[in-house]
């Protein structure tokens, strides 16, 4: 029969996802494209009040968790693709692209796990964005990219992706010790009209509901992260800014000393977890 030859189709429209399960699947294990990612581990020794550090992934509902387990479904990968285009784009007075010097981004495997770190020649604590902009202005003769905007976040995500699955290991002593201590102080300092510190939510109350959502430990091992709420990549500093607005505080400057110090301290709280860039959160 002609009929039998025709293709038999089963359409499973995924729009009607099962919404009945709205609790975090806390025992789930994260495997991305066959690669296991460590989402729970013993807290680093400098943390006094938490025994186990947990990736923000463990606090999300299983539908959100599933998005991160498949690179095709991870919307953050769209931005990584844009990052690759930008990586290969020749810009600036010296007619170079990132690829002219670095080839493919895999050269930076492992870099994400140690950022932010001290840059001896600049004499400052550098985030990934600083490396990108330094290359652009010094090597390419191009305009620096603006922090927290799509082009920058895409490149940062592309570089971060190379280290996915590797263990976060940010250095906290030596040259960066003062910055780290400053960051720690900021983490525990109450600010804003609600008079809250980072620790009030992300240390004292993680796992508890905040409105319709679970508070996480505020780990940044998955940044830049794709958020379902704004359908784009979110940088670490942009997230800090969002948090500060939520507690009715005046945010510090993106790329400023306060956020750099806080980035270092918060990153060090995730030492031992795997880098997850680009993660998916709500």
């Amino acid at each position: 029969m002609n009929f039998a030859k025709k293709i038999f189709i089963i359409l499973l429209m995924i729009f009607g996802l099962n919404l009945s399960c709205a609790v975090a699947d806390e025992s789930a294990e994260l495997v991305v494209e066959g690669q296991p990612i460590l989402t729970r581990t013993k807290a680093p020794s400098h943390m006094e009040n938490i025994d186990e550090v947990r990736s923000g992934w463990t606090f999300r509902i299983k539908e959100t968790q599933a998005l991160q387990m498949d690179d095709f479904e991870n919307p953050g990968m769209i931005f990584v693709d844009k990052g690759i285009d930008l990586w290969n784009k020749v810009e600036g007075s010296k007619n170079k692209s990132c690829a002219s010097c670095h080839g493919d981004a895999s050269e930076f495997k492992g870099l994400r796990t140690v950022m932010p770190k001290w840059n001896a020649s600049a004499g400052a604590l550098w985030s990934m964005e600083d490396h990108v902009n330094n290359c652009r202005t010094e090597q390419m003769g191009a305009e620096p990219l603006k922090w927290g905007k799509a082009p920058m976040d895409s490149i940062v995500a592309l570089i971060g992706l190379q280290s996915r699955g590797m263990t976060m290991n940010v250095k906290i002593d030596g040259d960066v010790q003062t910055m780290w201590e400053f960051g720690k102080e900021l983490f525990y300092t109450r600010v804003g009209q609600l008079d809250m510190s980072c620790a009030n939510c992300h240390e004292d109350n993680y796992g508890v509901m905040i409105r319709a959502d679970h508070l996480s430990q505020g780990q940044i091992n998955g940044f830049p992260t794709y958020r379902l709420k704004n359908a784009k990549l979110n940088s670490i500093h942009a997230r800090f800014k969002g948090c500060m607005k939520n507690i009715r505080a005046t945010p510090y400057k993106v790329g400023g000393d306060e956020f750099r110090a806080l980035e270092l301290y918060v990153a060090s709280r995730g030492n031992g977890l795997s880098a997850e860039t680009p993660s998916v959160r709500n």
């Binding site: 030859k5 293709i7 038999f8 189709i9 089963i10 359409l11 499973l12 429209m13 995924i14 479904e73 919307p75 769209i78 359908a231």
Partner: peptide
Amino acid sequence: VVDFDMKAGISVNPYFQFEAVVP
């Protein structure tokens, strides 16, 4: 196999997933 007609309410970066039996 499939033919989708889309209107203005569809989100950015439209994603479709379906199953098919190939003979």
